[in-house]
Design a protein around this nucleic acid. Structure first.
Lengths: 162, 162
DNA sequence: CGGTATCCCCTAAGATACTG
DNA sequence: CAGTATCTTAGGGGATACCG
């Protein structure tokens, strides 16, 4: 085993629900966090979405995702398998063949995830615009602080270390 | 600046959509990844869900989340603000007061996220069961490797490595 | 109060190499 | 082909101290 099964989840002790602000945020977060972190990690989404179309072999997945390393694909698949989202089917043929497919539960997750993906696709332009606006606003505020950067006069008084 | 605005997103170059497997996985992933990574990071979800109920001040958020550090709350809020999901309102009063509230876009994101949270809550038992089953199966396979298979007794040779 | 700047640790992800 | 084992590194995230 390379890494532990659990990592952080330290603040999960349901500190006090008296506060009217807290609802599922703290409580459900204990379980939601780890599951969300798992399915929303760098690769799981990709794998799930690919497998939703049809079952795939290890190498097919690797080539389809292409940025992924063997290591991460392997780990991701094992995680998904452990969570019951993906089924691993081994054919004991001479060149080994392993197929991966979504379980029914995995398929339901895909639907939910897809909604999130759609949201992202629908709003990515708005987000990009918001980012641009924000960056510009910040840059403008920097101008005020430094004085007019007529020639981008950056007085390099390195604040370095004391 | 402590950290760059972009980090990875290296494999985004839309390698080749000829493959029938790829659809939004690679293309949309370029945008989806960064946005998903943002909203699924350790704290953003909490903040969004809290703000969905009503606008809150910095300290209110800090106390509501309670496990969060100033640093991370500040960073999280700035990220969300930059993405246009959260609005920051500064009151120039003598003790400074800053309110945060969801933008309309942030509210729509919350709805989508909520669906995912609901999925998680609905399936957490199934996932826990799947994990237990998986772990048990793996343990059984370990037996085969280390001791004698199922027929004979369980040679309790601790399989653990030092 | 509402932040930012610094330091530091720890782990998750990448690269590489080896095996059944 | 389908993985594991090992090494290394970037950066996420906490603690602390200080500024407007």
């Amino acid at each position: 085993m390379e890494d532990g099964t659990f990592q952080s989840l330290g603040y999960c002790a349901n500190t006090g629900v008296d506060d009217d602000v807290i609802q599922w945020d703290q409580r459900a977060d204990c379980e939601v966090r780890q599951i969300l972190d798992r399915i929303a990690d760098k690769w799981s989404l990709l794998v799930i979405s690919l497998l939703d179309k049809r079952s795939l072999r290890f190498t097919e997945l690797r080539r389809a995702i292409d940025g992924i390393s063997q290591r991460m694909l392997s780990r991701t698949l094992r995680h998904l398998e452990r969570d019951g989202l993906v089924k691993r089917i081994v054919y004991p043929t001479v060149p080994p063949r392993v197929d991966y497919e979504l379980t029914p539960m995995g398929a339901t997750l895909h639907s939910t995830i897809h909604a999130l993906v759609l949201w992202t696709e629908e709003h990515q332009n708005a987000i990009a615009a918001a980012r641009a606006a924000y960056d510009e606003r910040i840059a403008a505020e920097q101008e005020e602080v430094f004085g007019r950067p007529a020639t981008a006069g950056y007085s390099g008084a390195s604040p370095g270390r004391p």
